[in-house]
Structure formats: structure tokens, C-alpha cells
Design a protein around this nucleic acid. Sequence first.
DNA 1: ATGGCAAGCTAAGCTTGA
Length: 253
Amino acid sequence: MKLITYNVNGIRSVLKKGLVDWLKATEADYVCLQEIKANADQLDLAVFEDMGYQVCWYPAEKKGYSGVAILAKHKINRVQYGFGFPQYDSEGRLVQIETEDFTLLSVYMPSGTRGSVRQDFKYEWLADFYNYIDDLKQKSPNLIISGDYNICHKPIDIHNPTKNTNSSGFLPEEREWMDKLVGSGFIDTFRYFNKEPHNYTWWSTRSGSREKNLGWRIDYHLASEALENRLKRCTILNKVFFSDHCPVLLELN
DNA sequence: ATGGCAAGCTAAGCTTGA
């Protein structure tokens, strides 16, 4: 069972660059997308359906902004768009599906800059999302939270931890929130298999950051501990260049 | 501290990103 999470930074942009051929070769069972930046009527979703995917598409209200999706090859028992907060759900940040196997979320957490209104929004979102997950994991013990968290958890997850102590995405409050979420019963599936530094999923488009591998690890597959014995592999696909993020592949037995 | 780049809005410059 293969699951991909990928912040595409504009689905129409990555389609032009060859996403379909790459997806075909990848043969993923589930694809969690973030920052699709398009309404369903702004592209031809049949390109995914022709590959055998059901498409759960959840754009933001604001055109060309944010938005998440899940592509699924297996039977979906239930789909949920958003998590019950109009101020968050209008931004297209969560789609959730339930299958015979597990509950899967594609999530795009807010970004901000320290001290800004959007940073406060991010903290509010994180607090409400934590409570939502705390409740959900009781109902759905097999839970996978995939997506762009906009948070580096630990110093090993960012190329220059010292310089970035004031950067949104690596603030103490955000890192503590990750401690709390993971500590509540989740496995950071990439770190479960790989303890090495210099593994990132996002690079600034400026100053040749990607060529120099000066990046941040902000895209995750968190799996509930009930799924531990099914974890097979988690791979950062850093040779895929369609977006400023790269995909992350989780394989389950 | 600043600036650097990219996607997509809408029609040359603005917003957002992290």
C-alpha cells in the first residue's frame, strides 16, 4: 500500500511539468495533495479518474489560494471536507476519507510570520486541530495524518536551526505543538526509519537553496501507533522537482 | 536586515508563501 503526500504549489503548474506520467509510474494507492490552487472546474479531473482514482477535491473559497485533495484507488466509505470551523474550512485545509483500512487526512496547515495576525491564526488552528485529532483517534484508531505541516519538528529537520529560531515554522511554540501531537500517540513515519540529517521536503526557491540542499522538513506522514506493525518504509522523494516541495512516500504492509 | 523566486490572481502589479 503506497501513500503519497505532496504540496504541489499549484496543481495546474505541476500538470504542465509532467505530474501525470510521474503518478502513473509511482502507482500510489492514495495521493494527498496540498496547495492545489484551483477549483475543480479550472482543470480536467478526468486525468486522475483515467488513472483509476476517485477524486476528493477541496479548494479554498479564495480563487487560486490553498486547497487540498485526496486521490484514492480504493473504496471510500466516507469523505469529509473541513473539520467544522468555517474560518478554517473556507481556506481548504483538510480533507478526510475513511476506508476499510484506515482514516486518511490530507492537511495543509497555515503559515505565518512571527508576531503577525496570521501567526495567531496558525496557533488557533493548531489548537483546534489538536483537539479535533484527539477526538478522532478515539473513533478511528487507524489514523494517518499526511500533509504540509508548515512546522519543522526538531533541529535535525532544518538546515540552519540557530538562524531560524525566530522563523515561523521553527518557533518553540510550534515545535512544542509537534511534541504534543506526536506524543499523543503518533509515529513520525519518516523518522521511524531514518535518523539522518539533511533530509528535507521544502526548499526556498531563492538563492539556489535546493541545489545546496538548504531546506526544511515540513511535510509528514504521521501514523497512529496502532499502525506501527504495518509500517514498511517512508521515503522523501527529493528527486521530484515539480514544486518547491517534494513528495513523501509512505508504504504500508 | 534585506532580498531573493514562483504561482496565480487579473490584466502590470499585487498577494501569498515559510
